[in-house]
Amino acid sequence: MPESHDFFVAADPESVRARVRGALAREGYTVEDGEQGALRAVRGSLGLTLLIGGLANDRTFHTRLDVQIMVTPEGRTVARLIRGSGKSALKGGAIGISRGNRAFEQAANAIHTELAQAGILTESVPG
């Protein structure tokens, strides 16, 4: 499973940030501004996840994702989705790993769909 996913976008960084924020919010994440224009998205309850581990459902299983919004030297805007800190295995063993993988995949799909439907996605590269 990739640890990151790059979305190359034909739009300015601020509009990309707003679209990514909206896509993650629709997936149930609370999205906050991070350092240097990044986004930090959190879903679920860490306490509940540590208590019941893999028995937590997709929306209550604690997941953290980070999104960096960058501009390449060529002037292309890139939104990089990164698995957040906090190992899924420690929060539910094999089931926790599976839930973490699924959450990352669902978030990547939501961002991809949002950017593609807006007609601004030029390339999507798992990393």
Results as ranks from 00 to 15, higher is better:
15 S>K: 09
102 R>W: 02
114 E>Q: 03
39 L>V: 05
5 H>Y: 11
125 V>L: 00
66 D>V: 09
18 A>R: 15
50 L>S: 15
24 L>Q: 05
89 A>N: 07
62 H>K: 15
54 G>N: 09
102 R>D: 01
100 G>F: 07
106 Q>P: 04
29 Y>P: 03
123 E>F: 15
71 V>E: 10
97 I>F: 02
95 I>T: 14
2 P>W: 04
121 L>D: 00
100 G>V: 03
69 I>N: 01
118 A>Y: 06
10 A>L: 12
27 E>S: 01
5 H>Q: 05
114 E>N: 10
121 L>Y: 12
76 R>K: 07
120 I>A: 10
37 G>M: 10
53 G>E: 12
97 I>M: 14
27 E>W: 05
104 F>I: 00
57 N>F: 02
1 M>D: 07
110 A>N: 09
93 G>F: 13
89 A>D: 01
77 T>R: 03
53 G>M: 04
87 K>V: 04
17 R>I: 14
114 E>P: 01
14 E>L: 02
84 G>F: 14
53 G>T: 00
90 L>C: 13
122 T>E: 09
45 S>Y: 11
101 N>E: 12
96 G>E: 14
56 A>K: 06
100 G>R: 03
71 V>M: 05
38 A>N: 01
104 F>M: 08
10 A>E: 15
123 E>I: 06
95 I>A: 05
28 G>H: 02
8 F>S: 13
76 R>I: 11
8 F>W: 12
119 G>C: 11
11 A>W: 04
83 R>I: 12
1 M>C: 07
100 G>W: 12
19 R>H: 07
77 T>A: 15
64 R>L: 10
59 R>T: 11
21 R>L: 11
81 L>D: 01
5 H>A: 11
44 G>I: 11
